[in-house]
Design a protein around this nucleic acid. Sequence first.
DNA 1: CTGAAAGCGCTAACAT
DNA 2: ATGTTAGCGCTTTCAG
Lengths: 342, 342
Amino acid sequence: MDDATEVPEASRPVTIHMVAASAGVSASTVSRALNFPELVKPGTRERVLETVERLGYQPNRAARSLALGRTASLGLIVPDIANPFFAPFVKVVQARVREANYALFLADTDEDPSTEVELALAMSQQVDGLILCSPRMPGRKLRTIAAKTPVVVANRLSRSVPSIALDFGPGVQQAVAHVHALGHRRCAYLSGPGGSWSNRQRLRAFTAHCESYGIELVVLGPYEPVFSGGYRGADEALAARVTAIFAYNDMVALGVMSRLADRGVRVPDEMSVVGFDDIEVASMTSPPLTTVAIPVDTVAKASAALLLSLLAETTPQRPAAQELATRLVIRNTTGVPKEDRI
Amino acid sequence: MDDATEVPEASRPVTIHMVAASAGVSASTVSRALNFPELVKPGTRERVLETVERLGYQPNRAARSLALGRTASLGLIVPDIANPFFAPFVKVVQARVREANYALFLADTDEDPSTEVELALAMSQQVDGLILCSPRMPGRKLRTIAAKTPVVVANRLSRSVPSIALDFGPGVQQAVAHVHALGHRRCAYLSGPGGSWSNRQRLRAFTAHCESYGIELVVLGPYEPVFSGGYRGADEALAARVTAIFAYNDMVALGVMSRLADRGVRVPDEMSVVGFDDIEVASMTSPPLTTVAIPVDTVAKASAALLLSLLAETTPQRPAAQELATRLVIRNTTGVPKEDRI
DNA sequence: CTGAAAGCGCTAACAT
DNA sequence: ATGTTAGCGCTTTCAG
């Protein structure tokens, strides 16, 4: 427990006029000394800054926003902060945005598209720009919001709004090739949320690559993209007599593994499991999970950078397509299928 | 990909005066119709609101803040957003704050106390109140910040600043009793960050209860409170010839288990492991982790509620001590020690 | 190089 | 019940 020395009561915050008075100059000079130091004579500037320091002056953001017409804050809207896939995204965006001297508003939609729209609309008026992470709202709504404030969409491709999206192709191709090489010929894809762009893309990629490798793909679900979603998925995959499971994401894969363990099905001996995302815990389970890794940090950085460059009206610095490619991380949940189960 | 129908260009945002003009009233009437509907005649009110709707008027927050002297936003500062212990905290706080019609600024200190101070200071001027989650800054700094804006401290006890802290006693007592009942007599505590209030409290509780149960406690560390911190911890605990390990938190416990598995030490047969926090993944590992559960959601809700009541100047609604108690969740990483290892 | 004055959009006395 | 006015704290022409 910290000690409890008395501390001065909060007094009225010091304004630019107090500084001006105390430094014997006008408010404009203080403003200039702070924002355009080169415009004020070194002597005066020094005196002003010293006074600012002494009085502990901090410009009132609201007043500044009002005068400037910009808020110096950005907004980030994610489906679920506590989701281990989004948390690192939030962290990286926050860091980037902060570096550029913006504050960050955060909101969580609880995976609900209409909440998403509502929050985005509400935020659009109090920020200089918005990052929508994996938005589920219809394209029309997206455009409505983009019309009110600069918007960047992450993890979804949009023609009308600047977006940073992943290329699932490479990772999925590698996953399918890997599983094919091990000898699997009948696999299941455990679908995620029907409305989600990610799910559609992943499903499409798995379908295409399985076809070209001559793997029979059984599409199951949709399942909730969470741990418990994997329970049902595991049971249904077992019933479908596949030898390998591609899960919509790692959480589902973890649920699958847990359920398989409960049912006494050994991974990878009796069933191979491939996750998606490569969230932190994927490498911490036993056995560690084979999964299609997504460069979240890259996506997050790129999203922040894109929004920032939009605001600065500099040429958007888009990442090379290659950086946004997914790739397979082979760990221990994939193996050669047991003959007797084929 | 969403379709790309043309959308009207962003025009200058509509102000209260435009609404006033269009509705044939004064700006004050519009303001009143919006903020104190009962003060304006039903007919006028209706006309105004209809105009507001038609024009899509949204009050400028900066202007409102400036006039009102309040920002309608709160700030939350956490050590690490991506940490599975803090992420749910952020989520719950966000939800609560939002319910009360506040927006939430989020910042991440990257576990650094001086960044923490810096962020808190910067935020203090643009929010109506601040929640500091598990702050590491010295008490003196805490008071400096509390002098500038209402502050609530979570996961740490403070005499000078309103705080919501946990009672580690019950959970630790149960953990020690549990392990004692299984027959363990020599255990290790893997310490977390030296400066952290949580670590001090946990260590103190383990020391006290082990003493009273006649368990010899070997204190190791400190270790980084992350997965890899558990690697070293596992090795050192093994070297110390203990039969059970109390980890500072679940991440460390997971690291311990991973390392033990690598070294071929079976859990719980050859080593029992007890975590702390009960983060989501604790129940997803195999074997599932025995751990001291913390009611994070309760702490988060309570913190938000406390700050909100401070701002509303209502009587703070503090949670009953009992709600903030920790408790042991027994899963499968604790068992009877093998004689030959004692 | 510096000061005076106007204005950002809104609210809240104060009139009427 | 509604309009007028002043002012929140800052920036920014515009003068000098």
